[in-house]
Design a protein around this nucleic acid. Structure first.
Lengths: 153, 153
DNA sequence: CACCTATGTTAGCCTTGTCTAACTTTTAGG
DNA sequence: CCTAAAAGTTAGACAAGGCTAACATAGGTG
């Protein structure tokens, strides 16, 4: 018997273990967020301007240039970007693949929020945070729901 | 005229400044995540077992006890919990208020995901990450959409 | 009531991601 | 082609949030 005032889990308690796994998932997502945000932005900049330079990345991320230098070198170690000192940044095949997945996810989340009637600024802002925590499962549900809403259902 | 191969922002570019603000918002959300997760869980444990003890918090968060000790002392500094050494943890009025807001948000996000046809485990998991990045605006849209779906619209 | 085990804390380390200050390289203009 | 400004890097600091190892306390039980 439990020592304290502990009771059998009731209906609202999905169990400590499941909950712990959920939090672990969130912590893991946080670890890949930096990489995802960078490659997504790099892909965007290459599309927009032909190349991604640290100064632009810093401006759009709202961080200072040294932060970008340090993080880019981490991405290089991770095999996501290729780059030589003082030159523009490019994505490796692995980086391109990740960027494409992130951009797809981002597009789906934004489109879904817009279909809910949320204004564009809010949709973009919230999507930036939400996208890293959406499972493939949920993403597909978003896609289905978006078209349902678009059909004025 | 821009120096490089830079072009006038096209339709898909919402501007560097807006984008930077979005990322700043996400970074700010990350700073309050720890506090929100803890107070939410503490409230849950108090409801479930009458008190919140570090060992249970650690188990449910999936972290080790020393991590809980350190973070609880941060929350105490922030005025969200009250507690004496070696005793159970309780929420201050400020902590209770925050916990209530978090639990409401959590409930809304979960209910919304469920209404989309997502299974319970996935809904709980994704909600854990998503809830910290949902603006009040979006939260209200979720509420509206949930009832729309429940009406089998 | 003394002690063993659970629980809790302290100390110290690590990684991530941010910053400022100072230095280096590139590059555009005269 | 030389030089100043813009861009990039390095060095070093710091806070957050994890961890392990070792120590401290509280409380139920023999």
């Amino acid at each position: 018997m439990p020592t304290h005032g502990r009771v059998t889990p009731d209906a609202t308690d999905r169990g400590a273990k499941a909950q712990a796994e959920g939090f672990a998932t969130v912590r893991q997502a946080h670890e890949s967020e930096m990489a995802e945000d960078y490659v997504e932005l790099i892909a965007e900049l290459i599309e927009l301007q032909g190349e991604a330079r640290p100064v632009d990345i810093a401006e759009r991320l709202g961080v200072k240039p040294p932060t970008v230098t340090k993080n880019i070198s981490r991405l290089k170690d991770a095999g996501l970007v290729s780059r030589e000192r003082y030159r523009a940044i490019f994505l490796t095949p692995a980086g391109q693949k990740l960027a494409e997945a992130c951009r797809r996810r981002h597009r789906i989340v934004v489109a879904f929020l817009l279909s809910l009637g949320i204004d564009e600024d809010t949709a973009e802002r919230d999507a930036e945070g939400i996208e890293h925590h959406v499972s493939e499962n949920t993403l597909e549900a978003f896609e289905r729901a978006t078209s349902r809403f678009e059909k004025k259902c």
